[in-house]
Amino acid sequence: MEAKHKQRLEELAAAVEQQLLTYVQVTPETQRQAKVVEAMRYSLEAGGKRIRPVLVLEFCRLCGGTQEQAMAAACAIEMIHTFSLIHDDLPEMDNDDYRRGRPSCHKAFGHAVALQAGDALSTAAFGVLIDDPVLEPSVKIQLLHILVEITGAAGMIGGQIMDMAFETRSDVTLEEQEAMCAAKTGALIRGACRLGCTAAGASAEQITLADQYGAKLGLAFQIVDDILDVTSTSEVLGKPVGSDAQEGKVTFVTLLGLEQARQKAAALTEEAKGLLAQFPDHEFLLDLTEELLMREK
């Protein structure tokens, strides 16, 4: 990634992280429940690529909006993403003890507190949008509608249910796997692009292009995740590797083989770049799109 683009990515991520922690802090109203707030902050502070909020901020900019217009939506989607990671790590789900190089939330705070921290983040996300002082009420309603759609049974949560159901099957097809990933991983990535456009008051055509870009990027992102689970190490990823194979889970690598999976991710990335090229001043996102294909964690 070009140095100037890497610096921009770091600056955007830092701005999101700073704002996130202003939303989630112990207040006089939550002093007696401070433990759950601490768990929320612990998971938000774990770092990560912050890809979803960056997409919100950048698509808002590409469509003529400001960072102030996009920040609430950027933080909201990162809260939803973080809540999903807390729950994914629980024993009933992926049963992972580490996340981003340190103990997962339920290992650090206990099962019950982690469960409640995830729930609290999921509701806080909607409050952040409702209370934002910058956005017009009509825009807030549009953003809330997107957030509901991408989070619920038709989106990320539904995708997780599909993923769990597939664990007991050995006959999952490529089409089914793509549909599951489009919901579990792709919904938030597509939603991030739409949130950014909507915050800026973009045209329907721009929102459609951004949504199509997000769909391609989201699927490529998941394929690369599946590849890294086979080729990387726990030290690099900051979480266990090889767990998919140990649990007998169907992945794009098991369906396509390693080389074909790489080719599919590369082809999707090229399609995403073609859609992105229809936006002005897209060089940063173009570089980021390529970086996500080549990433090592």
Rank of each mutant, 00 (worst) to 15 (best):
residue 49 K to L: 06
residue 55 L to M: 09
residue 60 C to N: 02
residue 193 C to Q: 07
residue 229 D to A: 09
residue 208 T to I: 00
residue 228 L to V: 04
residue 1 M to N: 06
residue 149 E to H: 14
residue 54 V to I: 15
residue 48 G to W: 09
residue 2 E to G: 06
residue 164 M to I: 14
residue 63 C to N: 10
residue 67 Q to M: 10
residue 162 M to E: 04
residue 170 S to Q: 14
residue 10 E to P: 01
residue 241 V to K: 03
residue 209 L to K: 11
residue 106 H to F: 11
residue 281 D to G: 01
residue 61 R to F: 02
residue 158 G to K: 05
residue 61 R to L: 01
residue 289 T to V: 09
residue 191 G to V: 05
residue 225 D to F: 13
residue 289 T to D: 09
residue 75 C to S: 12
residue 92 E to D: 12
residue 267 A to T: 15
residue 223 I to N: 08
residue 29 E to F: 12
residue 4 K to P: 00
residue 163 D to V: 05
residue 296 E to S: 14
residue 239 K to N: 11
residue 247 E to N: 14
residue 94 D to S: 09
residue 273 K to V: 15
residue 288 L to I: 14
residue 184 K to C: 06
residue 62 L to S: 00
residue 132 D to Q: 08
residue 23 Y to W: 10
residue 120 A to M: 11
residue 15 A to W: 07
residue 33 Q to E: 10
residue 11 E to C: 03
residue 35 K to T: 10
residue 245 A to S: 13
residue 104 S to Y: 03
residue 290 E to W: 00
residue 6 K to S: 12
residue 93 M to N: 02
residue 57 L to M: 13
residue 101 G to L: 02
residue 87 H to M: 01
residue 207 I to T: 15
residue 137 P to Q: 08
residue 105 C to R: 11
residue 50 R to N: 09
residue 60 C to F: 00
residue 252 F to K: 03
residue 101 G to A: 10
residue 22 T to Q: 15
residue 227 I to K: 13
residue 277 A to E: 14
residue 59 F to S: 11
residue 175 E to D: 15
residue 226 D to N: 11
residue 42 Y to D: 08
residue 261 A to N: 01
residue 82 T to H: 14
residue 199 A to H: 01
residue 280 P to K: 11
residue 138 S to G: 02
